[in-house]
Structures are given as C-alpha cells and as structure tokens.
Design a binder for these strands. Structure first.
Lengths: 148, 148
DNA sequence: TTAAATGCAAACGATTTGCAGGCGT
DNA sequence: ACGCCTGCAAATCGTTTGCATTTAA
C-alpha cells in the first residue's frame, strides 16, 4: 500500500505538486508519501527519518527545502502547536482546529461550524479582515485522563 | 513613573515573582518593569534592548534565563503568533485571544465569552480535558485595510 | 539540453550552558 | 555564609546556504 490511490477522487500530494508546477522528483515523491501515510502532524525531523528509511541517500537539506517549497505552493500547511518546531499537514481537507494532548503529544482534529461563525463575528466586531486563523486547545486526551 | 503602584489592588510582576519564590534581583526588577511598561507582546530581543537601556551591564543570557524562570513559575505566558520567536505577556489579565495583523504585525487582544463557551463545549464533545487554549486570527487590522 | 534539485558541509541565528565571580536573603 | 544570579564566551540546536554534481522535463 505504497501509493494508495487515495479516497476516490482525492489527489495524492505529489499530484498536487505537479499541478502547481512543483517538479516531481524521486525524493519529493518519498516525502509526499511519508506525509500521506502519517496522517499529518509530523515535524521536520520525523519526516526526515521516515524518508530516510525509504531512501538512505536523502539529506536533511532536501527535506527542509521540499517542505518549504510545498508550503509556499500551498500544497501543505505548517502548524506550530505551542512549541517551536513546525508540523506539516495537507490542507486539502476542510479547515479544522486542533486538540493537543499535553501528556502524550497526540493531536486530534475537530471541526465546528459554530466556532467558525464566531471567529468571523469577532473579526467583524473589531473591524479586522480575517484571512486565516488557528485554534489550539491544550489538555488531556481521553486516554491520558484514564491513565491518570 | 517607574514602579507604578499598578491598577488598584493588582500586584507588580516582581511582587508576583517574590510571592512565587522567585528571587527579586536588580536585573529581574528591570525586566519586569520593561514587560509592564510595554503592555505585553515583546519578544526576547525587544526585552533585551529595552532592559539594556536601563542597565547597560545586563546580558542576553540573563534575559533568556529570567523569562524562562518567570514562565515556569507562571508569572508570565509565552505566545508564538505563527512565527517562531516567543512573545511574553502577563497572565494576570483575564484570558483573551489575539488578532494578529499580517501586514504591520500589530497584535490586538479580544475577549469573547461566547467563544470560551464554545471551546469548553467542543472539548467535552471530544472527551478532552481542556487545560488551556489559544486562538489567533490572522488578517488585516483596520489601519492596514485603509492603507490598502 | 538546461534549469532545477540534491548531498554535503560550512554558515547562520537563536537559545543554552559552564564557569568564575557577584549578590540577595 | 550560603546558594542562587550574573556576564561572558563557547557550545548547541534547528535551519539555511554555497557549491559541485545529478536529474526531471
């Protein structure tokens, strides 16, 4: 299951790259596959190591360069999650916010139309033209609550 | 107006430090004053330069160490605002979210009880125990919209 | 063919740390 | 007096860049 024809109709990241004029090289294919397989939220180091498993010759610089290019092209999005270290995910999905577990580090996504409305409303009230937004809720996931 | 008895009843940062067992040294007093005078949202470099104006002998390491200690003690909070570089502010105020202007960099604060409720609600729906949260809205402030 | 992509290592900027001396309690 | 605090400079960490070589289109 390496290329996974993707959920009926959805394109793979590398296909999106090509469509956006980003050259599809062997290293980039590997990086895209890593991102897709992971389900998102990997940091640079994680991408690097997973990619290195597929192709020993890949270098960190390539990972940094590739992620930057894909981000600038709008193929992926960078998140920060409180700490430093960017994490990356595909924005082909709908907009969503994050639940970040401060105990195990797990990141869950959620969508709330009501919340989106509120963001719009607050922006308008402040005569602010909203272009993007980010909401992160930190706490304990269900599993970590059980474990105490 | 160097020490500014603070808004009736509110303590100064350095007083909070002492209460939390953080030693009140001359350098730390200066750093606290800088943070208070600024109204928040300074990054390390800004704190360093403003502090240096008051005391030429202060070093960067001390600024980093002091901010870290005060953050760990819960005297101040760190924010990231999309980029890297942490910004610091006093959490003695009520919780608030941020409107970050992507053009001029200005950061406005806002409070919305309705939004706070929504965050609680979403957390519960996901069986997530919310401990803290962060909402940042990126876009253009009123001024930058006028300027085009 | 030709510009873009890559690995390597050096460069870089921000933050941290070891150490000898200074200062708060 | 004691242990924490400080400045300094060196060390470290994550990220970027220059260059010679390889590769996609």
């Amino acid at each position: 299951m390496k290329k996974k024809k993707a959920d009926a109709g959805k394109e793979t990241l590398i296909e999106i790259c090509q469509k956006k004029g980003v050259r599809a090289t062997s290293k980039r294919k590997i990086i895209c596959e890593v991102l897709e397989k992971s389900g998102g939220h990997l940091n640079v180091e994680e991408v690097y190591h997973l990619a290195k498993k597929e192709d020993k010759s890949i270098g960190v610089a390539t990972v940094y360069r590739t992620l930057k290019i894909m981000k600038d092209a709008g193929v992926i999005e960078a998140q920060t999650f409180g700490q430093d270290h960017s994490h990356f995910e595909s924005p082909t999905k709908n907009h969503h916010d994050h639940l970040v577990c401060t105990s195990c580090g797990k990141i869950e996504e959620f969508v709330s139309d009501k919340l989106e409305e509120m963001k719009e409303k607050v922006s308008k009230q402040n005569r602010f033209k909203m272009l993007s937004h980010k909401l992160e809720i930190y706490g304990l996931c269900a599993d970590c609550q059980k474990k105490g």
